[in-house]
Amino acid sequence: MTIGAAVHDAFGLLFAGDGTLWQIIWVSLKTSLIGLGLASAPAVVLGYLIASQSFRGRRLVIWLVQAALSLPTVLIGLLLYLLLSRQGALGSWHWLFSQSGIILGQAIIALPVLIAFTLSAVQAVDPRLAETAFTLGANRWRIMLTVLHEVRFGVFAALINGFGRVLSEVGCAMMVGGNIAGETRTITTAIALETSKGEFAQGIALGVVLISLALLMNAVLLLLQGDTHNAGRLR
């Protein structure tokens, strides 16, 4: 099959509403969004606390968070495989080769991305913001919300990058999910499988979906930032 024919067939699959193709897309979106949702709140709070609090070992913690950003997802998949296997510490959960296992992996993968972006955004805030809020009688919870509101676009960027990271990873999903058709086959594992079989149409179609989602997410962030900047000029 020529590249032109494969591209033609790929768009045919997308516009024809191919059930197998959209099932794969649904599994990817479901596991990625749930995994990101589970990691978001604790990661944002941890990022804020690491950035705003002084404690022994803080620089070591920051170094570990930043190092975790480059941790291969296949290694995370291997560690989870060992934990979730029948002889593993979490084997009684029966999450290996299931969507629950993939969701756990996605949450772990998203965690350092969300922490690092939030940490960086909070560190860039003028410290007088928190000091002013404290002077006005705000408690610690209110101070945190005030600072996070100030850096909301940094948090949005964290969420978008975290979603992109978990949606596009293949190593962990392959090892923990097992690439089971209709159950744990995600966009990236399907692309790897179809390409290895020499069937490029479905792989190209799924690649188009990934690119479209990436463009859409970043367009939303740019629009939000643009609206805020324009409102600021009007004031």
Rank of each mutant, 00 (worst) to 15 (best):
W22I: 10
L46R: 02
E194C: 07
L75Y: 05
L216A: 06
G232Y: 15
A130S: 13
G162L: 00
I34W: 08
V27I: 15
S100F: 10
L159M: 09
F11V: 12
A205R: 07
Q225T: 11
L14M: 08
Q23R: 15
R86M: 06
I102K: 01
A121C: 02
C172R: 12
I24D: 03
G91W: 09
G182P: 02
T118W: 06
F15L: 13
L224N: 06
L13R: 12
I204E: 00
H8I: 14
L206Q: 01
I76Y: 09
R185M: 07
W95V: 10
I24W: 07
I191F: 01
A51M: 04
D9A: 13
L104D: 05
F97W: 09
N161P: 11
N139P: 07
A158V: 03
R86N: 10
T228H: 14
Q202V: 14
F163E: 01
I211R: 10
S40Y: 14
Q53Y: 10
Q53F: 04
S85P: 04
G35I: 03
H94N: 12
A138I: 08
L64T: 03
G19H: 15
L216W: 06
F163V: 00
L96P: 03
K197E: 13
T20H: 12
I211H: 04
T118G: 07
